[in-house]
Design a protein around this nucleic acid. Sequence first.
RNA 1: UGGGGCGUAGCCAAGUGGUAAGGCAACGGGUUUUGAUCCCGUCAUGCGCAGGUUCGAUCCCUGCCGCCCCAACCA
Length: 560
Amino acid sequence: MNDKLDEAAEETSSSDFIRDIVREDLAAGRHQGLVTRFPPEPNGYLHIGHAKSICLNFGIAQEFGGRCHLRFDDTNPAREEQAFIEAIQADVRWLGFDWGEHLYFASDYFEQLYLWAESLIEAGKAYVDDLPVDEMRAYRGTVTEAGRDSPHRNRDVAENLDLFRRMRAGEFPDGARVLRAKIDMASGNMNLRDPVLYRILHAEHPRTGTEWCIYPNYDFAHGQSDAIEAITHSLCTLEFADHRPLYDWLLDNIDVPARPRQYEFARLNLSHTALSKRRLTQLVAENLVDGWDDPRLPTISGLRRRGVPAGAVRDFISRLAITKSDGQVEMAMLEHCIREQLNVDAPRRMAVLRPLKVVIENYPEGESEMLVAQNHPGNAEMGSREVPFSRELYVERDDFMEDPPRKFFRLGPGREVRLRYAYFITCNEAIKDANGEVVELRCTYDPETKGGNAPDGRKVKGTIHWVSAAHAVGAEVRLYEHLFNSEEPPSGDDFLSDLNPASMEVLERAWLEPGLADLAVGQTVQFERMGYFCRDSADNAVFNRTLGLRDSWAKIKGKS
RNA sequence: UGGGGCGUAGCCAAGUGGUAAGGCAACGGGUUUUGAUCCCGUCAUGCGCAGGUUCGAUCCCUGCCGCCCCAACCA
């Protein structure tokens, strides 16, 4: 296997400080095989920040011929749920990764963890403490002052063992006692000031039920789980760097079967959104969004429902560097990756979002014809389709201006434009309602321009999309914008004040070309000139806008 | 003020003693039956700041400055 690893190591082109370490370790023959893990806590849905970790861990495993485990860090039954366990697996799969047989749970190791706790006690390196939470906090000192020893710090082994066993037996209520490591109350690193290892929690665990009433915390579970699974490189985010000395201390002081190492990298921060579990949970719990898979959320499920291809997410992550400097990536970067892939993959269709009726006065009443439209002008292999054309059509309201500026290339009184894949039409008259609002356009078409070209060689500046009124299918279309107005929403609960009230606009009466009635859920298409849209997974009558097209007209318009 | 980490363009970053890659954004221009796509071009005499070493410093040394994380019986 080592040869295979070496080969793989040489083939890998991408590089960052973690891959460099892996490469060196493999070259030095420090491991039998490469094993990483993605360790989510099942207390919420995965978001695009997790995608960075998933791509890193599974990616490195693939590149170096190793494997990556999916391990749930389910040590806090107070906030973990089976539903999250299932959603997380679905999201990792959707992203394109496969853990094979290697699905694990920290809770699978509870008995072993317990035994290791007893061994620490027997070695005089852990003790049961009775201090209430607030007192323990006071004893811990502050960031600039050393802590003080708990009065229970020097209980003898026998008493500690007895107390710890009685904790497990359920003799004490929640919060009555904890098991602590005996390290150094004066350490500059707060994590080493006799950290709590076990707490009493009479809560039902999604997997172990009521079998346990004491649970190990993150520090006492994570490194040991890594060791049990023979993880070689345990990759986590920067905020755990301070935990590394504890990770190492624990592994050095108990009898573990392997010796994994922890490395930290910067987590992903994205502009105009929220990427902390706390914030996402709050948005969902307070119904500020419509569930964990709301298309406005940066959750994997939200992105999927929005119509974002998994490949675009992976591409985005691959353009990010794995470093230790934390910054904030612009949403525009993600959007670029989405457009880049959708531009290639999304079939083109026509849909009118804000309809304005057009009557072609010289087109015979009651008649219609089928016109050929390309499914992708840049890729003939995607074929073509037929769309019905008739006397009454809908065009986009924004494609008509009563008093257009010089640079406006669309419809206006007396102006001629091309209806995509159809005919040139000229606007003769705009009909208004009692409020003076334009409600209908009377136009004439040039039968000679069928397909969109004039035999006399005359040109038109604008091409607009349309849909035959009698044949179109109605739909609700939802337009999404950034969830937050600021690039970086304010800290604390203030972040809610930055919510973008226009993050979702619902257009209830859009008209789609008839073929769109059969579009499959999850399939993303381009509505020409409007953007990328996908049928909503929860409501068939709804189309979600994944993203608009780049719009240089909006820039021109904005400048004048 | 203790400990840990980080500072290269608007954003993400490569480079680590020999004269600043790339991507995103932005801005010009060309093609175009999507004001899309595509193509071409512009965009750091400068690498947080100040000294020092050196023929030569983003890179080495010293001192500052700034930002992030840590005082849950969360992860």
